[in-house]
Design a protein around this nucleic acid. Structure first.
Lengths: 344, 344
DNA sequence: CGTTCGAATGGAACCGTTTCCCTTTTTCGC
DNA sequence: GCGAAAAAGGGAAACGGTTCCATTCGAACG
């Protein structure tokens, strides 16, 4: 393995000059720079990142902490982050912090303390006080996607707005019996669900309609189970369902099909996410594009790294309504033609 | 930030002794070791990983390269890897290498060359010659989950066996018109699909049955589309479907439902994976447990790191048949009772 | 034409560990 | 009780970069 000293010797300059030539910092004659670069390339020289980190204090690595890897939302965010980092030449170190596990404790107490990164992206963490304390103790910029208690930069969907918009859509179609399906539970974390539920409740109340909330585990099978339960009882059955997320909504659609309830003619279903399966199930939904949330957060963090005076901003994204074929006027309504398409 | 020198001073020993006490290498009196550890803990000392890496040449970090993050199989493998690494105190650096992208080229040519890891896990990569060359040029141990051309350690499902077992299951139920649904296409990479197809073909041929293969994109919507096409034509319709993976199988089940073809009474469907949705759709399938494949690969790699003489082994996992309610004897057969349960 | 300033470069210190090598102390077998 | 070997610990040299500081040289400016 050849070091910078070998490159310097081969190029006939000092280590100092070679370093300047390769990093682009400080004065170096154009001809020299070019020669050093060529020699380095020919020798297949690759700088040691540990040595560079030790000398500069920067790692060119970003840490990402998330509670789940195998859920659609998180995987999409991760891909977005990865895409931007790849382009910027940063590495990405992943920390898995499942709520309530011993592993999570170690991530916060040991792994993160090692500071093997210049900045941190927290995705859908809902850190408790101790965890939050550890996070600030690290002394590196933090940006989060979805909630985090403190004043770090945050990129998130405006969940309340999304739920309001979805509810409004159903009301405009003529529905009055609209049930919210979802949980005060995990998934992207309780805060998300609370905000969505609250958006639904407010909109219903403002319209003078009755609020009905059915709990469901936040997952496809969870939505299925909850919907089977709810729809199986004709007395309780609403004409429309607002699900806390697409997975729950799709579970509900599958349940309705199995129960022989046609969607959307007898039952409208709307979700929030625009999950990759949404199109397949013709699901009307509010798009939240986690991928671009990840990209956004990353750009924000990188910006903060290169100019530390830059204040962390909060970005709130307004979901776009995508109308597909899972929503229609309630049964027994004078037919209203609803186009399939996208509106904001 | 306090360094080891501060700790040494506070504990009244030399840097050398402090280092030995903390790392556990070399002779240190028990009392001294304990004192140094206590002082270090009180001061909140955290060793600089760059400095340690520079000195030792080891990073305590593992690189993971995969082409997709948001597909079930890959996400599960990743979680398995993460779990083992977390326990062993290793960091995990993730590299996203989508086939045919500029990003992938950079991963191989730039990112991996930086060697910020002690070993590498390649998941479902099917590297071309140039990429393979780069991989060995790194000079670090590599373990792969699913195919990789060369002689690195490999952990993978025995795909051929899985397909044979699935086919046998259908034949035993009395089916003779069995169509393979799947693609020579991406997903976990072409090799996987070829092996599964081949297992199906051989078993059919051995049983004297006719092979029929319908291509499908390897995804849920892909399976749906292909099945709609196939099942829509009564002349071509088989009594059983073997899908290359569960996502395709589930797509097919959804298609069958929509076409009013009852599963399993009129059509049996079997998949391979035991995907998280399999249970919900009562899908009979062969379990491949990507999570434990990831764990397995990681343990293999770590073992190799601590004892470099250890030869990389190839591990081939035999899938377990899980019988649910998507398979039954073909229509018009004297009824055979099939228990729901697990067999090997 | 002397002074000043910027460009270009080299020497050496430094980043924070680990580890080699050497000295001193202890232990243990005979 | 002695010698050898093992245990304990210290000083200093790595590891491979970056960057401060000093030096030289040439050009621009008054």
């Amino acid at each position: 393995m050849s070091g910078i000293e070998d490159v310097a010797r081969a190029a006939g300059v000092s280590k100092a000059t070679a370093s300047r030539a390769l990093t682009g910092h400080g004065y170096v004659a154009a001809a020299t720079r070019e020669r050093v670069a060529r020699v380095a390339h020919e020798m297949g020289y690759v700088p040691s990142s540990s040595a560079a980190s030790l000398a500069t204090g920067r790692t060119r690595n970003i840490g990402v902490v998330m509670p789940y890897l195998n859920r659609w939302f998180f995987a999409e965010v991760l891909e977005g982050i990865q895409e931007v980092l790849l382009e910027s030449g940063y590495d990405l170190t992943l920390y898995d912090a499942k709520p309530g596990t011993e592993g999570r404790r170690r991530v916060f107490d040991d792994f993160l303390a090692r500071k093997r990164f210049d900045g941190l992206i927290a995705v859908g963490l809902e850190p408790d006080d101790h965890e939050l304390e550890r996070l600030v103790a690290i002394g590196r910029p933090v940006v989060s996607v979805v909630a985090i208690g403190d004043n770090a930069g945050v990129v998130r969907l405006d969940d309340e707005y999304a739920a309001r918009r979805a509810t409004t859509h159903l009301i405009e179609l003529g529905h009055t019996k609209i049930t919210f399906l979802g949980g005060v539970s995990v998934s992207s974390g309780p805060h998300v669900d609370r905000a969505r539920l609250s958006g639904y409740q407010r909109t219903m109340t403002e319209a003078g309609l009755t609020v009905t909330h059915v709990r469901s585990e936040v997952s496809l099978p969870g939505g299925y189970a909850a919907a089977v339960d709810l729809l199986g009882d004709p007395a309780r059955r609403p004409t429309a369902l607002l699900a806390t997320c697409d997975e729950v909504a799709i579970g509900a659609i599958i349940a309705a099909r199995r129960l022989g309830i046609p969607v959307p003619s007898a039952l409208s279903v709307v979700g929030i996410d625009n999950h990759e399966f949404a199109e397949m199930f013709s699901l009307t939904t509010l798009e939240q594009s986690p991928r671009s949330q990840g990209m956004h957060a990353t750009q924000m963090l990188l910006g903060q790294l290169e100019d530390p005076t830059q204040v962390p901003q909060d970005v709130s994204i307004q979901a776009r309504l995508i109308v597909r074929n899972s929503t229609a006027p309630p049964p027994g309504t004078a037919s209203v033609t609803v186009g399939v398409g996208v509106t904001s």
